[in-house]
Design a protein around this nucleic acid. Structure first.
Length: 559
RNA sequence: UGGGGCGUCGCCAAGCGGUAAGGCACUGGAUUUUGAUUCCAGCAUUCCCAGGUUCGAUCCCUGGCGCCCCAGCCA
C-alpha cells in the first residue's frame, strides 16, 4: 500500500452509537457485519462507502465482517464479477479472512424453510403471470386483491413447489409467494414473491437449481445463518424491513439479526448507476470499466488514487440518513492530502518549448541536486542534469503577460527550480509567426535561492528538463467525466453533460531522466503540475505513459 | 392524495432539554527555490416554517412546508 494509514479519527455516527449501546447492554458480546454485493457488475465508489462502514465498524469494535455474495439471480451474475469484487475489497485494504460466503450456499436451507412456510399455510404457489400479479397488487393508494390461487391447499402447494424445484415448469409460469396481507399499506408485504423459476446456470452452484429465492427471502435468513448482528444496508431497503422481520419471525432461524439503513453516496460530476456506467462502456465513451475517469474501484485504482485516500474519504463524509451530495472535490482533496505526504517529486514538461541558454557552454553538462520532497529530507535527493538547451512548459511563457503573471516573459527573469535564474532575451519564430524557440541567458551566481547576485528577488520559479537528457513520454490528463455537478438528475439525458475535455493526451512530454526507470506503482508529484503515475496497462519501459491522478491546488488559476 | 424516511453554515456532519463540534470550501495574513505544502486568523445570536410545553428547545408536542424511497418473477 502506498501510504499513510493513519486511521482517521472515527467520527461519531448513529451506527456507532447503536453498536456501543448493544455492546454495553450485553445484547451482543461482539459484532458481526457483512458486505453483501450481488456479483452482477463492478464495484464503484458508492460501494466503497458501504465496505468502509461494514469492515470499519467490525475493525473498530473488535468484531468481524463477512464478504457475502448475494447471488440469487443467475441471469445477471458472473464469475468475472465475483473475482473483481474480491480484488477491489482487498485493494481497499480489507480482509474477510475465512468469512467468504454466498447466499447460494444457503439454497438448500432456504428451500426447506420455504417448504416450512407452505406447511404452515404461510406460502402458496402462484399461477398468475407477472402482469396479473401486478394488477392484483393494487397501487400506492389502493389495496391489492387476493389471487385466486391464494387458497390452494397445503398439499397442492407442496406438490407444485417440489415440481418447480424439479424443473418441470418453464420460466415465468409459476412463483412461490408468501401469504401475508394483500391490503398492507406497505407494498412489500402484499404477498411478496419468494421463488421464481430460472433455468440458467449459476456462477457458484452451477445448474443444481431451477428455482431461485428472491433477495427478500434470502437476505435476512443468510444474515441469521451467518449470525450477523448488524445488517447494514442503504435507505431504499427500509421499506423491506418489516418483511425482513416477518421471515425471521416465521422461520426457525438460528439468530436474530437487525437491519439498519444509511444514505447511499452521491458524488457530483459522475454517475453511479450500473445501467449508465455500462452504457458508457458499451458506447465507447470510456475505454472500459477501468477507464481512469470511471467511478468504479478498478477505474479509480488505475487512475492512481490510493486506497488510503479512498478510505479517508469515506471516513470524512460520515454516515447519516439524509440524502446528500458529496462534492467531487472532497475526494480529490483526500487524494492530494495522501499523495502530498508520500509522493516523491520530479520534473516533467508537458507542453515543451525549447529554451536555449546562449551564455551557457554548449559542451557543458552540470549535475544538480534536487530534493525528492521539500519537507522530507529523509526522502533524499536525486541528481538532475542541466545543459545549454532545456525544455520548459509553454504555459510558463507569455510574450505579452497578463496581469499578475509571474513566470517567464521576454526580458523577464525566472528561477529554474533547483537551478539558475535565467532571463529570456528573445524568441524565434517560423514563417507563421508561431514561437519555435526561446533564447535566454543564465546568471552563474544564482544557483542557490531566488535572489540575483545584486540582491533582486525573482518572483517566479518554473520547472524544466534538460533537453539532451529528457525522456519522452505520453501523458494523459484526466478531468471529470461530466461538466455538470449532477448529470444523473431526472429529465435530461445524462450524456449531454459529458465533459468533452475529460481526457487530453499529450504525446510529446519531456520527463527528467530519473523517471525512465520509474516503478509503475510509484505516484510522483510532477512539480507544479499535479500527481502522476504510470498507466498500469499501457505504459511500457520503452514507451512511458503517465496518468494524471489529480492536479495540485492552484490559487492562480482560480483568479 | 397509502406507507416509510429525511430537513443544523456553500457541501458534508456532530449534537439526544442547559445556551451551535469538526472537515471541505471560502476570506485575510505569515513562511516557502512548487502561484504546492505548512502555519495563524476569520467564517451559523442560529438549527425548514408557525404555534405550544419549559426557568430554558436544534433537541419534547401540535400543525404546516419541502425533498427522498416503495406498486421487478432486480438487488
Amino acid at each position: 500500500m502506498t501510504s499513510n494509514d493513519q486511521a482517521a479519527p472515527a467520527a461519531n455516527n448513529f451506527l456507532r452509537t447503536i453498536i456501543e449501546e448493544d455492546l454495553k447492554s450485553g445484547k451482543h458480546s461482539s459484532i458481526v457485519t457483512r458486505f453483501p454485493p450481488e456479483p452482477n457488475g463492478y464495484l464503484h465508489i458508492g460501494h466503497a462507502k458501504a465496505i468502509c462502514i461494514n469492515f470499519g465498524l467490525a475493525r473498530d469494535f473488535g468484531g468481524r465482517c463477512h464478504l457475502r455474495f448475494d447471488d440469487t439471480n443467475p441471469a445477471r451474475e458472473e464469475q468475472e464479477y465475483i473475482d473483481s469484487i474480491k480484488e477491489s475489497v482487498r485493494w481497499l485494504g480489507f480482509d474477510w479472512g475465512e468469512h467468504l460466503y454466498y447466499a447460494s450456499d444457503n439454497f438448500e436451507q432456504l428451500y426447506q424453510w420455504a417448504t416450512f412456510l407452505i406447511e404452515g399455510g404461510k406460502a402458496y404457489v402462484e399461477d398468475l403471470n407477472a402482469d396479473e400479479i401486478r394488477a392484483h397488487r393494487g397501487t400506492l393508494t389502493e389495496p391489492g386483491t387476493d389471487s385466486p390461487y391464494r387458497s390452494r391447499s397445503v398439499g397442492e402447494n407442496l406438490d407444485l413447489f417440489s415440481r418447480m424445484h424439479a424443473g418441470e415448469f418453464p420460466d415465468g409460469t409459476r412463483v412461490l409467494r408468501a401469504k401475508i396481507d394483500m391490503a398492507s399499506p406497505n407494498i412489500s408485504l402484499r404477498d411478496p414473491v419468494l421463488y421464481r423459476i430460472i433455468h440458467a446456470p449459476h456462477p457458484h452452484v452451477g445448474d443444481a437449481w431451477k428455482i431461485y429465492p428472491m433477495y427478500d427471502f434470502a437476505h435476512g435468513q443468510s444474515d441469521a445463518i451467518e449470525r450477523i448482528t448488524h445488517s447494514i444496508c442503504t435507505l431504499e431497503f427500509e421499506s423491506h424491513k418489516p418483511l425482513y422481520e416477518w421471515f425471521l419471525d416465521n422461520l426457525p432461524v438460528p439468530a436474530r439479526p437487525r437491519q439498519y439503513e444509511f444514505a447511499r453516496l452521491n458524488l457530483t460530476y459522475t454517475v453511479m448507476s450500473k445501467r449508465k456506467l455500462q452504457e458508457l462502456v458499451q458506447l465507447g465513451i470510456v475505454s472500459g470499466w477501468d477507464d481512469p475517469r470511471m467511478p468504479t474501484l478498478v477505474g479509480i485504482k488505475r487512475r492512481g488514487y490510493t486506497a488510503a485516500a479512498v478510505r479517508n474519504f469515506c471516513e470524512q463524509i460520515g454516515v447519516g440518513r439524509s440524502d446528500s451530495w458529496i462534492d467531487a472535490s472532497i475526494l480529490e482533496d483526500c487524494v492530494r492530502t495522501d499523495l502530498n505526504e508520500s509522493a516523491p517529486r520530479a520534473m516533467a514538461v508537458l507542453r515543451p518549448i525549447k529554451l536555449v541558454i546562449d551564455n551557457y557552454p554548449a559542451d557543458r553538462t552540470e549535475e544538480l541536486q534536487a530534493a525528492n520532497h521539500p519537507q522530507k529530507p529523509e526522502m533524499g535527493n536525486r541528481t538532475i542534469f542541466f545543459s545549454r538547451e532545456i525544455w520548459i512548459d509553454a504555459d510558463d511563457f507569455m510574450e505579452t503577460p497578463s496581469k499578475g503573471f509571474h513566470r517567464l516573459t521576454v526580458g523577464g527573469e525566472v528561477k529554474l527550480r533547483f537551478g539558475y535564474i535565467i532571463k529570456c532575451t528573445g524568441v524565434f519564430r517560423d514563417e507563421d509567426g508561431t514561437i519555435t524557440e526561446l533564447h535566454g541567458e543564465y546568471d552563474p551566481a544564482s544557483r542557490e535561492g531566488i535572489h540575483t547576485a545584486d540582491g533582486r528577488k525573482v518572483k517566479g520559479v518554473i520547472h524544466w528538463v534538460s533537453a539532451p537528457h529528457a525522456v519522452a513520454a505520453e501523458v494523459r490528463l484526466f478531468d471529470r467525466l461530466f461538466s455538470d455537478p449532477n448529470p444523473d438528475r431526472g429529465g435530461a439525458d445524462y450524456k449531454q453533460f459529458l465533459n468533452p475535455g475529460s481526457v487530453e493526451t499529450l504525446i510529446e512530454c519531456k520527463l527528467e531522466a530519473t523517471l525512465a526507470g520509474a516503478d509503475v506503482e510509484t505516484r510522483y508529484q510532477f512539480e507544479r503540475m499535479g500527481y502522476f503515475r504510470q498507466d498500469p496497462k499501457d505504459s511500457l519501459s520503452d514507451k512511458l505513459v503517465f496518468n494524471r491522478i489529480v492536479t495540485l491546488r492552484d490559487a492562480w488559476i482560480k483568479k
